[in-house]
Amino acid sequence: MKKLMSILSVVTLGLAASFAVAVEPSPNPVVKAEVVAQQGAININTADVAELTKLKGIGIKKAEAIIAWREANGDFKSVDQLIEVKGIGEATLMQNRENIRI
């Protein structure tokens, strides 16, 4: 049992060390969703147009529609409510789900 714990400790430390390596920015253009992921999720209840346009598939018009929906209906209670915003479909929601918070 002691030997097994030693092996597990070594494996765990090795995995942790491999994840601790700093990631350099890619010289290629970065997809908007990746930029958002690096900066933290966007709160759709407080974000302005500039912040919302960082989401993949969200331009100025859709960002304005999100804010208009928020002003008319109050804060979003769930990320899924974005479907209620004109121009936001299931595909857009799925592309950004990990980068959105309430």
Score class of each variant (00 low, 15 high):
residue 48 D to Q: 07
residue 60 I to Q: 12
residue 42 I to H: 02
residue 32 K to E: 08
residue 24 E to V: 14
residue 21 V to S: 14
residue 50 A to I: 02
residue 66 I to K: 00
residue 46 T to R: 14
residue 59 G to F: 05
residue 76 F to K: 04
residue 60 I to N: 11
residue 98 E to T: 10
residue 12 T to A: 15
residue 88 I to F: 10
residue 21 V to N: 13
residue 52 L to C: 01
residue 53 T to E: 07
residue 102 I to V: 13
residue 54 K to N: 15
residue 79 V to G: 04
residue 49 V to P: 12
residue 72 A to M: 09
residue 66 I to E: 01
residue 24 E to L: 13
residue 20 A to T: 02
residue 38 Q to Y: 07
residue 5 M to E: 09
residue 56 K to E: 15
residue 13 L to I: 07
residue 50 A to W: 07
residue 81 Q to N: 01
residue 78 S to P: 01
residue 62 K to D: 06
residue 28 N to Q: 15
residue 92 T to N: 08
residue 71 E to N: 10
residue 57 G to K: 10
residue 47 A to S: 11
residue 63 A to D: 09
residue 44 I to V: 08
residue 46 T to Q: 15
residue 96 N to T: 01
residue 45 N to D: 00
residue 33 A to I: 04
residue 30 V to I: 08
residue 54 K to C: 08
residue 83 I to M: 10
residue 31 V to R: 12
residue 45 N to I: 15
residue 93 L to Y: 11
residue 88 I to N: 09
residue 51 E to A: 15
residue 87 G to S: 04
residue 37 A to F: 09
residue 28 N to W: 14
residue 82 L to W: 09
residue 22 A to D: 03
residue 21 V to D: 02
residue 45 N to E: 03
residue 45 N to G: 12
residue 89 G to Q: 05
residue 40 G to E: 01
residue 23 V to T: 01
residue 97 R to T: 14
residue 86 K to G: 04
residue 94 M to C: 00
residue 32 K to F: 01
residue 92 T to P: 00
residue 17 A to F: 07
residue 93 L to D: 06
residue 67 I to K: 03
residue 34 E to R: 02
residue 78 S to R: 04
residue 62 K to C: 02
residue 23 V to E: 14
